[in-house]
Design a protein around this nucleic acid. Structure first.
Lengths: 230, 230
DNA sequence: CAGGCTTTGTGAACGAATGCACGAGCGAAT
DNA sequence: ATTCGCTCGTGCATTCGTTCACAAAGCCTG
């Protein structure tokens, strides 16, 4: 079989950029561009050209010197590497505001991540239909996961319920979790977790804003002392 | 003035963990814990204890050897470093599904990021009230930013409108942007941009899932060739 | 078919982040 | 006051990621 160059591990930083390249390449393809150089792709992705080349080199040697990369071919290769050759059904835990928004959004399914189910602990929420999917009770999680071959779970519960949700997902056989709750999930090392946290993002931004301004001594009154009295 | 240790630059990786520590410390404080060791904090944050200590050391030397860190004092110091000693009003561009959800969410204001305004290009959306804030036309952006001293803008538009939204935000004087649209924004280097992208997160997860399974040769038929005919 | 132009792919230098390991400092107990 | 046990703060080695810079390799033109 062909020298299957692409089976070595790809650095995490590269993996997180591949989806960006993929989207850009898709757009370029739609615009009729069929070949693209690393400089151009780098410009569109907002990164360094050498980085683009090194990233792509992990997939194999798919460029043509003096010319660039053939867009459609590269799209195929990245999709393959990201496992986008087939759908990945996801199950959403938590049918509150966020869970409903995610399920109703629709763009999910179109992008290869159909919603296999939504579950909630609250019996009052069970039965309603969101985005064509009926909300089921969380006890049915195992069944949904098994029946649909779900590997990816989405935690869209309040913070207090997130750990429990994660444990149930793991028990049901899910091996990757996307966590929207503002909590650190404790899960077995073998489980892949990614976190999306609005508050964290805003706090990082305000750090930079504060730093931009923050020359000199602005805060002064009311600095708590390290308790004198133990 | 006190040897003001905390004015040196804090590594980006550390900045992104401070909000996590902050949240955990807040919870601990609520539970009546008043002192915490780096091991414990590390455990709760899911990181290495040495990392916690190094991270905190950038703020200054606020621990007590043999004891640990005084929770409330540390909370204060982190909040100060992150610029959370005052509110940071934000303006949201785009009053579609996402914009509405964000504005209506409420947790925003409670956490120190009150919604100073929501704007949209679509006149049909202007005037409706979401989460107590009236939607205004995007032409009023400059006015809102100036009047409320807004530094942080949130892009919640479709991908196609995101670049325009960003440019308007920058023109209005915003210096930090939180981008929910699946696009790379081109902005001056001085502008801080953070991106939240659902598709990217899911694709990273499916990469790992694919890799978990992906031993051997599964895909075979229909591999596009690098076009023979130019 | 040779020479020039372009762009890839990658070795090597650099820089950032992590994790270990241990000295220094603090509180408590004797 | 001295000793002991605990935990911070940090120097150092290592790993991971980025960027530079250039040889190798392809197209195009004459």
């Amino acid at each position: 079989m062909a020298p299957d160059r692409a089976r070595r591990r790809i650095p995490e930083a590269t993996v997180s950029r591949l989806p960006v390249y993929l989207r850009i390449l898709g757009e370029q393809s739609d615009e009729g561009v069929d070949s693209i150089a690393s400089d151009r792709l780098a410009e569109l992705a907002g990164v360094n050209a050498a980085k683009v080349r090194k990233d792509l080199s992990y997939l194999g040697s798919y460029g043509t010197r003096g010319v660039g990369y053939e867009v459609d071919y590269l799209v195929y290769q990245i999709r393959r590497e990201l496992g986008l050759t087939h759908d990945w059904p996801v199950v959403i835990v938590g049918a509150g505001n966020l869970g409903q928004a995610l399920a109703g959004y629709g763009g999910f399914g179109q992008r290869g991540y159909p919603v296999a189910g939504i579950v909630d602990v609250d019996p009052a929420k069970v039965g309603s239909v969101i985005g064509g999917v009926r909300v089921r009770h969380i006890d049915e999680l195992g069944q949904i996961v098994a029946a649909r071959g779900v590997n990816i779970g989405v935690v869209a519960t309040p913070a207090a319920a997130a750990q429990d949700a994660a444990e149930r997902l793991v028990a049901a056989g899910v091996t990757s979790i996307l966590n929207f709750a503002p909590t650190v999930l404790a899960v077995p090392r073998s489980i892949e977790v990614r976190k999306v946290d609005l508050a964290v993002e805003l706090q990082i931004l305000s750090y930079h804003e504060q730093r931009r301004i923050g020359t000199g001594t602005q805060v002064d009154g009311r600095i708590p002392q390290r308790s004198a009295t133990a």
